[in-house]
Design a protein around this nucleic acid. Structure first.
Lengths: 145, 145
DNA sequence: TATTGTTATACTCTATAACTATA
DNA sequence: TATAGTTATAGAGTATAACAATA
C-alpha cells in the first residue's frame, strides 16, 4: 500500500530470504542457525554467559543449553571469569575457530546469487544504507520500547 | 575486509536485527515467528499443506505440527482439496484474519526506529535495491545450488 | 539483597522414518 | 509406483521457576 509498508515488506522479505540461506549453510555444516551465530560471535571474543545471552536476546538458561551442546562437540570452552567468581567465560576452541573460518566463505558464496543482481555501485549503495540503519537503535531484543 | 564481505556482513546483521524485531512482535502476540509467518502467508491465500511447507522450506511433517497447533487455537482451518483427494487446503479463520490485521501495524511500528535513520529518498533507494535483489534467484530453501 | 549460572520442567520447532489413502 | 498428509519418535531451541554460589 503505502511507501512505508512497501519498504517494510522488502526488508522483511529480504531478511527471511537471507535467514533461509544462512540456515541452509549452517545445516550443511551440522549446525543450527543459533549455534552458528554463537560461534561467529565468539570468533574474536571471549564473553560471559550473560553477555552472550543478552546479545542474542535469549534467556540465560537457554544459553546454558546452547553452550552445553557446543562444548560437548568441542567447539567451545568454558572457564571461570577472573574478576567475578560467579561468572563463566565462553570462548572458541581451536576446532571452533577452524569451523568458523571454514564456513565463512560458504556464507559469502551462498549469498552471492542474491547480490549478483546489483551492480557494484548499487552494492555499495546498499551497504551504506544498511550500515546507516544498523547505527540506529532498532527496538531490538533488549529495548522493549 | 573486502567490499563484498562488508556487504554480506551488513546484510546478515540487518537480517538478524529485523528477525529479532519480528520475533518480539510475534511473541507479544503469543506467536512464534514461524506461526506468525504462516498466518501472514495465508492472509490472502488458500494453499495446500505441501505448497506451504515448500514455501517455508520445511518438511511436511513439520507443517502438520504447525498447522495442528494453529488450528487448535482456531486461527486457521483445514479442508479437503477439491481437485486432489489426497491434498488438504489450509486457510485463515476469521479470527486468524483479525489477528494478522491487528499485528501488521505493530510490525511497521516496531521496525520504524530502524528505518528512521534514513531520509525518504534513501528509504526509496533501499526499497528499490532490496526489490531488485528479491527478483533474483537466491539459492534459497528449495534450490540447493 | 542482587546477580550469575545451572537445573528441572514443559512446550514449540524441526527432521527422519513408517504408515495410510489417493493418484 | 508416486504423491499428500499424518503419526511416531527424537533432538534442538526456547522460556519460566527454583536453586546454589558469589557479590
Amino acid at each position: 500500500m503505502t511507501d512505508r509498508s512497501d519498504l517494510v515488506d522488502a526488508l522483511v522479505q529480504t531478511s527471511f530470504t537471507t535467514m533461509a540461506v544462512l540456515t541452509r549453510v549452517a545445516a550443511d555444516n551440522d549446525l543450527s542457525l543459533t549455534q552458528f551465530r554463537v560461534l561467529a560471535i565468539l570468533r574474536d571474543r571471549r564473553v560471559r554467559m550473560t553477555d552472550l545471552a543478552a546479545y542474542l536476546g535469549l534467556e540465560k538458561s537457554t544459553m546454558t543449553g546452547l553452550v552445553d551442546r557446543a562444548e560437548k562437540r568441542r567447539l567451545l570452552l568454558r572457564a571461570p571469569n577472573e574478576q567475578d567468581g560467579r561468572a563463566v567465560d565462553v570462548f572458541l576452541s581451536p576446532e571452533g575457530v577452524e569451523l568458523v573460518d571454514r564456513v565463512r566463505p560458504h556464507v559469502e558464496r551462498a549469498l552471492a546469487p542474491m547480490l549478483a543482481g546489483l551492480s557494484p555501485a548499487h552494492q555499495h549503495q546498499l551497504r551504506d544504507l544498511m550500515a546507516r540503519m544498523l547505527s540506529r537503535p532498532a527496538g531490538g531484543p533488549a529495548s522493549t520500547g
